[in-house]
């Protein structure tokens, strides 16, 4: 177990360094005339925004992959759960009277912690409720029925937010001022980017530990592999599936909060695009595999930003999905293959 974690950490560190160098190289390709130090600075700055965007995709992708792993459902409503997360965070912050950057650091940390906690719990409950009422009644129905239901739930969530909150984009409070910056290799990077990356990494590690070494994590994995056998070992599969939805949706809620902080602008249909990309990330990494989903999320964030730095920003979407197709041609099960959801 410890060996596995150590190996994973080493691989992750290696991937971080290599992708950094790669980003600098790609930046050089895009801006050949610039001086070397300028290229390094731009590449580093871009690298950090790739990490931030990747972190958001990765957090959403985890929900897709966990749900697929346990009940083989592509939960198309998940992107909109993320969107609701952004709006719940918006409601929390604005109702507490915080519309902009918070100057006091302890207050900022306190409000952020409170925001994460409440958003994640509310979204977790929402996710579990969606499972209870929309998916569980259809658990033994043909595969198409819950899929269509998921699309239905997606539209319902969008519609509810549209009517109850706003039809047009709303400015979400950017609590962390962009004036907090650090300089690295000549690049001035907002501290927010690093913060987002770290929060995402902490959440992912917590998830790994939870799934890998706890009673409920084992219940989740056993339910994913053989639902009936798990039940005959005393696992309450309904509760386990509900917990899976709770965790996946809570992570999407955290991603929503982060998105609001980062973009400063949210709209009721933002979940569609982000959801599809995150789903792509999950497939890219190997759907059903939580490490794969995180990897896929960061990969897609990287490709999107790389497209911008190399001057191909108009080809962003085409590039992302070309990579998806390429990977799937050579590795149909995704980069890391299926793990949790693999059936015996």
């Amino acid at each position: 177990m410890t060996f596995r974690i150590l190996r994973l950490a080493l691989i992750a560190a290696g991937a971080l360094v290599i992708s950094w160098l790669l980003m600098i190289g790609l930046t050089w390709l895009g801006t050949r005339s610039e001086s070397f130090s300028n290229v390094v600075a731009t590449g580093t700055a871009q690298y950090f925004s790739a990490l931030t965007i990747g972190a958001i995709y990765a957090l959403i992708a985890l929900g897709y992959t966990m749900v697929y792993g346990i009940i083989e459902l592509i939960n198309f409503a998940h992107g909109d759960v993320f969107m609701v997360g952004a709006f719940v965070a918006y409601l929390i912050f604005t109702s507490l009277g915080f519309g902009g950057a918070i100057k006091s650091i302890p207050l900022l940390i306190g409000i952020l912690l409170l925001g994460f906690l409440v958003t994640m719990v509310v979204l977790g409950v929402l996710g579990a409720a969606i499972e209870r009422f929309a998916y569980r009644p259809l658990r033994n129905a043909p595969r198409l029925a819950p899929l269509i239901t998921a699309i239905g739930v997606s539209f319902i969530l969008q519609n509810v937010v549209q009517v109850l909150i706003s039809n047009s984009p709303v400015p979400s409070p950017q609590l962390v001022s962009l004036e907090y910056r650090f300089t690295l290799l000549g690049a001035s990077v907002p501290l927010l980017n690093l913060l987002i990356f770290l929060v995402a990494v902490v959440l992912m590690i917590a998830l790994q530990v939870f799934v890998g070494g706890t009673r409920l994590g084992r219940a989740m994995r056993s339910t994913a592999q053989d639902r009936e056998a798990a039940q005959l070992m005393g696992v309450n599969i309904n509760a386990t599936i509900a917990i899976t939805f709770f965790i996946g949706s809570a992570l999407a809620g955290a991603a929503g909060l982060i998105y609001g902080l980062y973009k400063g602008n949210i709209v009721f249909n933002l979940g569609f695009d982000a959801g599809l990309k995150a789903f792509t990330a999950a497939v890219l990494g190997g759907i059903g595999n939580t490490v794969g989903a995180a990897l896929g999320g960061f990969a897609i964030g990287f490709i999107e930003v790389a497209a911008v730095t190399t001057g191909l920003s108009r080809w962003q979407e085409a590039l992302v999905f070309s990579v998806l197709i390429l990977v799937l041609v050579f590795r149909p099960a995704g980069i890391l293959g299926q793990q949790i959801g693999e059936r015996a």
Binding site: F210, R218, S222, A230, E342, A344
Partner: peptide, 25 residues
């Protein structure tokens, strides 16, 4: 045989002990 094939032998037994363990999420 219906083991949890992607889990270790020890983890398979630990799933069997699911109801005897108490710790919450």
């Amino acid at each position: 045989i219906r083991l949890f094939h992607n889990m270790t032998a020890l983890e398979n037994v630990l799933v069997g002990m699911h109801l005897k363990l108490r710790s919450t999420p």
